[in-house]
Amino acid sequence: MVEVTGPATRPAGRVRRAATAVLVAAPVLAAGACGTADAADSLLREDVLAIGVQTDQPGLGRQIPGAESGRYDSYEGFDVRMAKEIARNLGFPARKVSFSPVSSKMREEAILSGQVDLVVGSYSVTPERKTKVGFAGPYYVAHQDILVREANPASIRNLHDLAGKRLCTVPGSQSFHRVRTEQSVPAVPVEAKGYTDCLGKLIAGELDAVSTDDLILAGLASMAARTGDYMKLVNAPFSDERYGVGLLKDDVDGCEAVNEAITKMYQDDTVRLQLNRWFGPTGLELTTTVPQFEGCI
């Protein structure tokens, strides 16, 4: 699997459409018609919807081995499915949706540069990130937990047991910061390119644990089990991770339309079915009620 370290690539020739352009999702937009003076720049007026997704998070966002980057069918996982359903509910057919790989540390840049219209990729809403980009949703609330080898040689059973232990850190991710700074647990950082790389280091004994969102950890555990490397969740959650859909701050119309799409996905059972598809076999306790939205203004 290729680890992407640069910003997502926006399809060639893509520009913001003018105010006179045809609205592709009029029924959805009508439900949130309050808008802003910059409504002409809304993602709803794009010819092709460009979405940034993760590629190294099994169960959430993963590029299918051998698949051509950018194709609609090149990626799989819960986040990818959510992105496809959001696009469909906004009125974009599959042929009008482009996916691009984007790493954790490049998500804001990909949005601000206009290379993608949305980012759907375990993108936790934080006050710092909200100063740069806007968020619709969240579409799910995960919880940070801890993954260890099944034998658990370091005897890690809760957050405080991470003191002095080797813990993975990924550029652009807040997970290590939550442990070391917010929770004041002096874990020892071991840097990795992404969470699949973290898993490889954990299997190799270069780490004592990986701590991040429970959905990511469940996907990693399932991936490891397929090769006979068994992992387990400690089941000691210590944060709420509100997975938002990143977009430009001023795109209120787009944000409200995405919120309408997410609400519909909970009402028609799409979210529950996809959660069970990707994470049901892991035994992780899943939440299937619509989260409280951040608000678009």
Rank of each mutant, 00 (worst) to 15 (best):
M223E: 15
V252N: 01
Y230C: 00
D214N: 15
I203P: 04
A236R: 02
V234F: 02
T212H: 08
M223L: 15
D250T: 08
L199T: 03
D250N: 10
K201A: 11
S239A: 13
A209G: 04
M231W: 09
V210F: 05
R242C: 00
R226C: 00
A221V: 06
L248S: 03
L248C: 02
N235F: 01
R242K: 14
D250W: 01
G244Q: 10
E206H: 14
D214H: 13
T227F: 13
L220I: 13
A225L: 04
P237E: 13
S211W: 11
A204N: 06
V210K: 09
G246S: 11
R226S: 15
R242G: 01
D214F: 00
A221Y: 08
P237L: 09
L247S: 08
D229N: 15
K249G: 05
G228Q: 13
E241M: 07
V245L: 09
M231V: 09
D214Q: 14
K249N: 02
T196M: 14
V245S: 03
G228W: 12
N235L: 07
D213M: 08
Y243M: 10
A204L: 11
A224M: 12
L217E: 04
A236I: 00
T196F: 14
T212F: 10
T227N: 12
R226E: 15
E241L: 09
G200R: 09
M223F: 15
G219I: 03
T212N: 15
Y243W: 11
M223D: 12
L217Y: 03
L199S: 01
C198T: 10
G219K: 06
D229R: 13
L248F: 02
D240E: 15
D208W: 07
P237N: 12
L233P: 01
A225W: 02
P237W: 11
S239C: 02
Y230A: 00
L220H: 03
K249R: 10
M223S: 13
A225H: 02
A204Q: 09
R242E: 15
G228T: 12
S222T: 14
L207S: 08
A218G: 14
L220E: 06
E206Y: 07
A236E: 11
I203K: 14
I203T: 09
N235A: 15
A221D: 04
D250M: 00
L199A: 11
G246Q: 02
